[in-house]
Write a protein that binds this DNA or RNA. Structure first.
Lengths: 242, 242
DNA sequence: AAGTGGTCTAGACCACTTT
DNA sequence: AAGTGGTCTAGACCACTTA
């Protein structure tokens, strides 16, 4: 249990909104009220509320208050860096992970380039497909630096690699860049997904960094066109320059 | 000129990083230094730096300092709510907008549903294609509440609707939800884009809200598969529950 | 030990909405 | 006038890194 007051506030309200205890449109207590009831300072309350606002949970209106947004309609709060396990648990879908490979190999030229390392460096290669409602519609291929992740097993890959990295190896995952595009389906796609006669797949490339900016993981998440969906929540920063 | 110290700090450094004055890997002055030189408090410095960190400009490391990230390699800082004009200006690509229609109509059932209004309400419908490097690869269809936007012209649509809304109508655009998926190409797609023999297009649906949470704009941005790219920057919030 | 960023406080003033 | 969120301050303590 850490001493992170504003994060606790965030989690409390995020959960209440996720579970529907606080329905869309409800008004949160004012910042002064929250500060008083939680016995914390108002700036700390504001840190928590601002996190909620950034992640699409609430909207703050000057002079009025903070109100719960309608997050349920748009499911999939992917905006953020969330693991597949965390996501499927939140959605409660019937999903299954099939691990096809968990092997320690040496990086080829293409992967070395993506991970920005030299070729022949040892890496972990993990191939998994995700079955949702009985259909294999996602193929995830992960590459992790063996220098950072010395050990990896099929069991970990079947459960959650992120959980292992964070809770066992105590790695601090900091940020990721993702690039989404559409590409021709490969043989591997056909082998591990039920693609019917699709010629293309959506490819989400992920570059995951640690706190010290080390790039330690490159992921290709390949999705069947008709099942792919990505949801983003964005706030506008007014850029009225000069 | 507003009194927004931390936003000024953000813009200053964002520009310096965008233009390469501060190359990737450079170290920013420490928070205490910045507070001293700018004659502001450290918490205010931190607000500016945190904005930079959120938007992928810098990474902050405890005990070490703040460092510029490599934003150039992954261009397209789409993560955020940025208009097409702002984006193309930042990228400096040869692009052109062709306005096909700017008309005041009454909402049909489908659009009324997206905008969450009743059918037959007056709305503006704008159809534009975007030509990049000589090819028409994006089709944007916008629907705006006439109640919020009383007037709209072809000239505005050719330039920037956002600029008009914010600087002329003084509307406060607050946030947007975006949903990305792949769908079958329609006749309209073939009419206004150079689709060759593609059967599908990437569809980015955008729901844009004002400060008071009013949904006032629904946008369909339709992209040719081979030219579509979406880049996202995400920071991890550790969710080590219970 | 000195410097860094992370968290928190108690108070202040402002602009905006409501009564 | 009272209440709301937005900004800013000056100072405190902590955990972490570097020397």
């Amino acid at each position: 249990m850490k001493n992170n007051i504003y994060l606790n506030l965030y989690k409390d309200y995020a959960e209440q909104i996720d579970t529907g205890v606080l329905p869309p449109g409800s008004k949160l207590p004012s910042e002064n009220e929250l500060a008083a009831t939680y016995q914390i300072s108002r700036e700390t309350v504001r840190k928590g509320l601002n996190l909620l606002a950034q992640n699409g949970y609430i909207n703050k209106i000057k002079g009025k208050g903070s109100f719960v947004l309608d997050t349920g309609r748009l499911k999939f709060p992917i905006s953020g860096l969330v693991s597949y396990k965390e996501l499927s648990e939140r959605l409660g879908k019937k999903s299954r992970t099939i691990v096809h490979a968990t092997e320690r190999v040496r990086a080829g030229n293409d992967i070395a380039k993506e991970l920005r390392i030299e070729a022949d460096q040892p890496i972990w290669k993990v191939i998994r497909s995700r079955e949702i409602d009985g259909e294999r519609i996602i193929l995830d291929i992960d590459y992790l630096l063996a220098e950072v992740v010395p050990e990896l097993t099929k069991e970990i890959a079947a459960d959650s690699i992120y959980q292992y990295l964070e809770q066992e190896l105590l790695l601090k995952i900091s940020y990721a860049e993702k690039v989404i595009c559409v590409e021709r389906a490969t043989d591997l796609d056909h082998q591990y997904m039920e693609l019917k006669d699709d010629t293309h797949v959506v490819v989400v490339r992920g570059y995951v960094h640690l706190e010290d900016t080390t790039l330690f993981q490159y992921t290709e998440s390949r999705h069947r066109l008709d099942k792919f969906q990505f949801v983003d929540f964005a706030r506008r920063i007014s850029v009225t320059e000069t």
